[in-house]
Simulated scan of single mutants.
Amino acid sequence: MRRADVRIGISGWNYPPWRGKFYPEGLPHRSELAYASSVFKTIEVNSTFYRLQTPTTFARWFEQTPDDFVFAVKAPRFITHVKRLREISAPLANFFASGVLRLEHKLGPILWQLPPSFRFDADLLADFLKQLPRDTAAAVHAARKHDDKLRTEPWLKTPKEQPIRHALEIRHESFLVSDFITLLREHEVALVCADSVDWPLVMDVTSKFIYCRLHGSKELYRSAYDAEAIDLWARRVKAWALGRTPVESRLVGQPEDISRRRDVFVFFDNTDKLQAPHDAQTLIERVQRFTIQAKS
């Protein structure tokens, strides 16, 4: 049986307060991604949420990271927060034409984060999920429909066809219905397991991989995770990776047989006060310790 790929990292890497603390004193700013990717096997890209990047930028990120590194890419808020998933054919094309595919084999899951005011609408969501490209060939096809709002030369190629994974983060209680879980499973889209003080924490498995975002459960984006909390998340990661349902899971839909192993992505988004790098490194150590104990 294939071993699950467990990747634990941070959300973003360009934070001035980290300089001289997480980042070594005097490290050039241009070298921060290279340093962070030497510590973590994955990082969630935030800048793509705020504006379209360019193929040159994606190429630079590709070149600065190890060959076995994986980026998770946050999709544009223009699609999720401005258009609110309506009339998105051109914006979706612009996103995939902007150079995302330049990440090649380092392109991991695409994160779609809905705003807190966005309520569950089954028809709207189903239409959106149908439009998401499931592999790089489909993404190139979609990208060809870009419009003149793309301010750069489009990137419309990929050296090797590969699947594209999608994860959806909700922030409104109206999504806590079984129809939503069923819809995600039908489209093979991961429900983001988001730990925060403000938004629902649900743990239904809806795809072949798990995507977690740890925002700080006591103070949003700020609070650290103590040893007890890190141990809890380590046990959850281990359970998912082994094809089991974690104990004390909050489920909305019918439990799914998850007997096959799942790849797991965990990103610490408690980036204020330098919490994220420390917590991510601690969780990596705890997961590795659990793995060693299981083998002994």
Rank of each mutant, 00 (worst) to 15 (best):
M1H: 11
R3H: 12
A4Q: 10
I8P: 01
G9I: 05
S11D: 01
G12V: 03
P17V: 08
G20W: 07
P28G: 12
H29L: 10
H29C: 02
S31M: 15
Y35S: 07
S37G: 10
I43K: 06
T54L: 06
A59L: 00
W61A: 07
F69K: 04
F69Y: 06
K74D: 04
F78D: 13
T80I: 10
R86V: 11
E87T: 07
A90D: 04
A93W: 00
L101H: 02
W112I: 06
L114P: 01
F118H: 14
F120N: 01
D121W: 01
L125R: 09
L129F: 06
A138K: 14
A139W: 00
T158K: 01
Q162G: 02
H166D: 03
A167W: 01
E169N: 08
I170Y: 09
E173N: 12
E173F: 12
E173L: 13
S178N: 07
D179Q: 09
T182A: 09
L183C: 04
E186S: 15
H187R: 14
E188W: 00
V197I: 13
P200E: 06
M203K: 12
V205M: 05
V205K: 03
S207G: 03
I210G: 03
I210F: 02
K218G: 03
Y221A: 10
R222K: 14
A227S: 11
A229T: 10
I230A: 10
I230C: 05
W233C: 08
R235W: 00
R235N: 08
V237Q: 02
V237S: 02
G243C: 13
G243V: 11
G253F: 00
Q254G: 04
S259M: 03
V266C: 13
V266D: 04
D269R: 06
N270M: 09
N270R: 09
H278N: 10
I284F: 09
Q293L: 11
A294S: 15
